[in-house]
Amino acid sequence: MTPTTAHLLYLIFALGGVGIYLLLPKAGRSQALAGAVIGVISVAGLLTVLAARVILPDATTVYFYLFATIAVLAAARVITHPKPVYCALYFVLVVIAVAALLVLQRAEFLAVALVMIYAGAILVTYLFVIMLAYQGGSPVYDRRSREPLLAVLAGFVLMAAVAGRAEDLPQPASPPTVAVPTADAQDAASQLHDSNTGAIGAAVMTKYVVALEIAGVLLLVAMVGAIAMSRKKVPVERFAAPVRPIGQVGREVEPY
């Protein structure tokens, strides 16, 4: 990346920051329209800058930019929409776009797993909780944000710092379609097998089996914790054993 491209990128990031800032729910007149316009412009600019380096776009590149755009725009809408239900739905869109991107990178298993777990389980749970805590109308905490300026500043500075250096990494030689045997013979398990699923399965079951087990325990603990957290407290006296004075005879009566 030439320095001018880098500077252009920073400019686009700045523009994007302004757009997000305007889009965040604030008191006073909504500047969402202006924010949306600026945001779209910045995304377009980003595309232009990045895609301009490509001489001959092939299908992978086109799909990449398409889904990347969708992902970024949907993510922007997730964080800026005043209504939480819409945030959740836009998030589903983000998940699907990311899954598509993963497919593009030959990580099919992960893509499907992402869709299943996120869109299928997590988002449904979110929607349930949103309905549970429905407050009606537009409460104040949805209409206003905390320190939008500082948050945008901090986040976008971080983003620019990281993204500006992304070019320093070497490019892969060619997209690997089949497994390229590595020099490390002990790493046979981590080579790409015929299918992506098989490869992940082999890696997880052999090399990362401990992590797998721990992940299972983690899930169990989380389940128990979630149940323990949300249970109603029951007064203990209802289950206490009756105190029987010494010497008293008679029929025992159940406490309840």
């Binding site: 922007a76 964080i79 944000s145 939008p148 948050a151 945008v152 901090a154 976008f156």
Partner: peptide
């Protein structure tokens, strides 16, 4: 970064 901004600013 977008996620971070959302985390920091929404109520």
């Amino acid at each position: 970064a977008l996620g971070l901004v959302g985390f920091l600013s929404r109520r």
